[in-house]
Design a protein around this nucleic acid. Sequence first.
DNA 1: ATTTATGCAAATCCTTTGCAAATCT
DNA 2: AGATTTGCAAAGGATTTGCATAAAT
Lengths: 166, 166
Amino acid sequence: MSQDFSLGTVEVALGPRERFEEFLQSRGKRITQQRRALVDEVFKRHDHFDADDLILHLSRVSSNRRVSRPTVYRTLVELVDAGLLRSMTLGGRTVYEHDYGYPQHDHLHCQKCNKLIEFHSDEVARIGEALAQEYQFRVTGHRLIFSGICADCRVQKRPTRKLDLV
Amino acid sequence: MSQDFSLGTVEVALGPRERFEEFLQSRGKRITQQRRALVDEVFKRHDHFDADDLILHLSRVSSNRRVSRPTVYRTLVELVDAGLLRSMTLGGRTVYEHDYGYPQHDHLHCQKCNKLIEFHSDEVARIGEALAQEYQFRVTGHRLIFSGICADCRVQKRPTRKLDLV
DNA sequence: ATTTATGCAAATCCTTTGCAAATCT
DNA sequence: AGATTTGCAAAGGATTTGCATAAAT
């Protein structure tokens, strides 16, 4: 099994838009202006975002690029179904990130500034395999978030002490 | 280093109720009927629960055990602050579990029947330590959830069980 | 010509808040 | 007494839905 991923360039057969259209067709769904606008907007981003970010950017655009609030939400669900996006809930809000042609990773979440730092660890997958075996559980994915205070935010606070894990 | 935990009995200095009262006092907060009722109700449980579960059980009790919705929510926050409970968001809902005198663990979440299976892994903490070092991040906790299909649900072709989707 | 998708407004769901009355210390 | 809490009703914020109209196949 080869790892074709690298942080800079990623090997994927199709672009996200093509991939989405393929998905839509496979389900008898239609390729509309707003779905196109959405994928484009979503893949213009390279960080984490939520529905409101998109709504904000798509609400004041020329009419054929304008997408309504309900449609943004409806399409976001489809993009997740299509495997293009991954979602996670952070403090009541649903946050999205690319999941297509993007290396598997997990997060460090700063509780002060809300920053998300990505990291990768093979360990996690190994733990998952062991668990699958032990519990006869079919693991399809995981979500690991370490929370705490990021380097930037630590500066303002107390002197640097030894890290105390909870 | 000794592991004083066992799944059956756990060593703790105080019971949850005493611990909570200690916490309240240390903050100049008051020990009220409803806070007492809440801790008791919460620690009667041994599984995961949400605010509504508690509200349901505490809404039709004799007047001195009755607790209103807002108070349930307010007290839940305090219980988390006090380190007695831990919360996580699962599909828009906030779910709680004991965090006091309860071994550190993570979860396997069955997407079919919604079951939560707990497991423990020291590995995760180790990953956290490594990351803390690497990113100069102060890790205060983590949340790891493997999702997939549990053994029970894998066996059944058709879901014959209740599935309360979240 | 069908059938699906969109947008609007209103509805839901969970959670939080303002405030007067009740309850602690 | 004096301060904190409670409960009620209402507000909030994010996400969803009903339905008539617009757009895609």
